[in-house]
Simulated assay, not measured.
Amino acid sequence: MLGWRITLLYRLETPVLTRFAMTNAWNYRRADRDDIVELASWRGAGSLGLRPHFHDESQIVLVLSGSRAFRIDGATITVPAGHAALIPAGMLHAPMPTPDQETVCLNAYVPASRAPSSLRIISIGARWRSVDEIMPEHILEIADDTLSHESSSSVGIVDRTKLGVALTDSLKPIGEIAAGFGRSREGFSRMVKRELGVAPHGFRLLARLNLARKLLRDGEPIAAVAADAGFSDQSHLTRLFRRTFGTTPGLYWRD
């Protein structure tokens, strides 16, 4: 299996081509354009189960064969082949292990403004005849096509944003932040768990992992990333990074 490689071609800037070699692991690549932050590919028997996490970017999951499954808001969401899932920035989701059928998947991480503010699953099967024809433009079309289906309601979005900002932009203890919302520590923790899907300290940890991911993309050495993102050492970052994103900082940084 590891010796069998399928290459997807992505036309990033005509006539430059970037190759994605997909094996039984997540492989991350930077996209040399402003409207896609990065791309990740998977090919293997089934897919990995990972810890619940969120991204600062909106995530577009293109399933080309097999299937992907996620645990979101207490429900299992399955994305079959020929479909895409649009996971908004900040939405907690837990990738679930899938059966041992061969799965080929592409993740695209795009600026939050390029995708809807609510979870979407749409059919993409007719958009191309083969995987070799997929281009970033197709990915962005999928994001744009969903915008017209967005509800005009934004109930809850502001509150969730305020909670996330309060937890990540301040080093204050949770109790002090809770007081700023007029809540006890326990009441604030319940509100955060209800609105963000994870306890305050867990949210802060995930935000630090996302910061580490950004610093790695910017080319900062791993040891410095661990320190700057608030981890005790490089091994601490590596352990949590692998459990959350399905690869190590070393492999991610090298790509």
Rank of each mutant, 00 (worst) to 15 (best):
Asp73Trp: 05
Met22Val: 09
Ser130Phe: 06
Gly44Ile: 04
Phe203Met: 10
Asp132Val: 09
Ala85Lys: 06
Thr103Ser: 09
Leu209Arg: 13
Ile36Pro: 01
Thr76Gly: 00
Ile72Glu: 12
Val104Lys: 07
Ile122Met: 00
Asp132Lys: 10
Ala40Pro: 01
Pro200His: 05
Ser130Lys: 04
Ser170Lys: 00
Ile177Tyr: 04
Arg243Asn: 15
Val37His: 10
Leu106Ile: 14
Glu176Tyr: 11
Ser113Leu: 10
Ile142Phe: 03
Arg190Ile: 05
Thr78Asp: 04
Arg204Gly: 09
Leu9Gly: 12
Glu186Pro: 00
Pro173Ser: 02
Arg29Ala: 09
Asp159Arg: 03
Arg204Ala: 08
Arg29Glu: 09
Ala112Asn: 00
Pro88Phe: 08
Gly182Lys: 11
Gly90Leu: 03
Pro116Asp: 03
Ser118Gln: 12
Asp228Gln: 15
Lys214Ala: 09
Thr7His: 11
Ile157Phe: 10
Asn107Ser: 10
Arg120Tyr: 08
Arg208Tyr: 07
Phe203His: 13
Phe231Ala: 15
Ala112Met: 05
Leu140Gly: 06
Val16Pro: 07
Leu147Cys: 04
Asn24Trp: 09
Ser47Arg: 00
Ser184Phe: 01
Arg11Thr: 12
Val110Met: 04
Ala226Cys: 14
Ser232Ala: 15
Ala143Ile: 05
His53Gln: 12
His201Ile: 11
Ala212Glu: 05
His138Asp: 14
Leu62Trp: 13
Ser151Tyr: 02
Gln59Ser: 05
Arg242Ser: 15
Leu92Phe: 08
Ser47Glu: 06
Phe20Asn: 01
Ile72Met: 09
Asp255Arg: 13
Ser154Leu: 03
Leu196His: 02
Ala40Cys: 06
Lys162Thr: 04
Gly90Arg: 04
Asp56Ile: 07
Leu163Trp: 01
Leu209Thr: 10
Ile77Cys: 03
Val158Gly: 01
Trp4Phe: 12
Leu50Met: 06
Ala31Arg: 04
Ile157Glu: 11
His138Gly: 03
Ser67Tyr: 04
Arg217Thr: 12
Glu150Tyr: 00
Leu196Pro: 07
Arg254Asn: 12
His149Thr: 11
Ala94Lys: 10
Asp132His: 09
Phe231Cys: 14
Val61His: 09
Thr146Gly: 05
Thr103Tyr: 11
Leu86Phe: 13
Ala84Leu: 05
Arg129Asp: 12
Ser232Cys: 14
Val61Trp: 08
Ala81Lys: 07
Leu206Ser: 07
Arg127His: 01
Gly175Lys: 12
Thr23Ile: 06
Phe70Gln: 10
Glu57Leu: 01
Arg217Tyr: 06
Val110Asn: 00
Val79Ser: 07
Thr98Ala: 08
